[in-house]
Simulated assay, not measured.
Amino acid sequence: MIGKIATGEIEDEREELSSAAAQLGSLGGKKRAENMAPERRREIAQAAAAKRWSKKPEGS
């Protein structure tokens, strides 16, 4: 089927459900941040930054 779609023999008739689900999922983080106290958002951001900077670069 993939080969036929690639060569144009048939049309891809699948529904794009995954992209709609991904769009809804991205709203959750924004809504969560809106409802969270600024102090808590800061704590989470600082913990994430510390985790990022504590990792050793690849090849080192």
Rank of each mutant, 00 (worst) to 15 (best):
M1C: 07
M1F: 11
M1E: 10
G3S: 10
K4P: 01
K4H: 09
K4L: 14
I5A: 11
I5V: 15
I5W: 01
I5L: 06
A6E: 13
A6T: 11
A6I: 11
A6G: 02
A6P: 00
T7Y: 03
G8V: 04
G8L: 03
G8N: 04
G8D: 05
E9Q: 15
E9K: 06
E9P: 01
I10E: 05
I10H: 06
E11T: 14
D12A: 06
D12T: 09
D12L: 10
D12Y: 07
E13R: 12
E13Q: 10
E13G: 03
R14N: 08
R14G: 05
R14K: 12
R14Y: 04
R14A: 11
E15K: 09
E16T: 02
E16A: 11
E16R: 12
E16Q: 09
L17Q: 07
L17G: 08
L17I: 14
L17N: 10
S18Y: 12
S19R: 14
S19C: 03
A20D: 08
A20Q: 11
A20P: 00
A20I: 14
A21D: 12
A21F: 13
A21K: 09
A22L: 12
Q23V: 11
Q23G: 15
L24G: 15
L24F: 12
L24D: 13
L24C: 08
G25V: 07
G25M: 13
G25Q: 14
S26K: 15
S26Y: 06
S26C: 05
L27M: 15
L27N: 11
G28W: 01
G28Q: 07
G28Y: 05
G28D: 06
G29C: 02
G29K: 03
R32I: 07
R32D: 08
R32K: 15
A33T: 09
A33N: 09
A33K: 08
A33E: 12
E34I: 02
E34C: 05
N35Q: 15
N35F: 04
M36P: 00
A37G: 04
P38T: 02
E39R: 03
E39S: 12
E39Y: 01
E39L: 03
R40M: 05
R40Y: 01
R40H: 03
R41V: 01
R41N: 03
R42A: 14
R42D: 08
E43S: 06
E43C: 04
I44D: 03
I44T: 03
A45G: 05
A45P: 00
A45T: 08
A45I: 07
A45R: 09
Q46V: 14
Q46K: 10
A47Y: 01
A48I: 10
A48E: 14
A48V: 09
A48P: 00
A48K: 14
A49S: 10
A49D: 05
A49V: 07
A50G: 11
A50F: 04
K51L: 06
R52E: 08
R52Q: 10
R52I: 11
R52P: 00
W53T: 12
K55T: 08
K55P: 00
K56N: 06
K56S: 09
K56A: 11
P57L: 04
P57M: 03
E58M: 06
E58S: 09
G59M: 02
G59D: 03
G59F: 00
G59K: 01
S60F: 10
S60L: 11
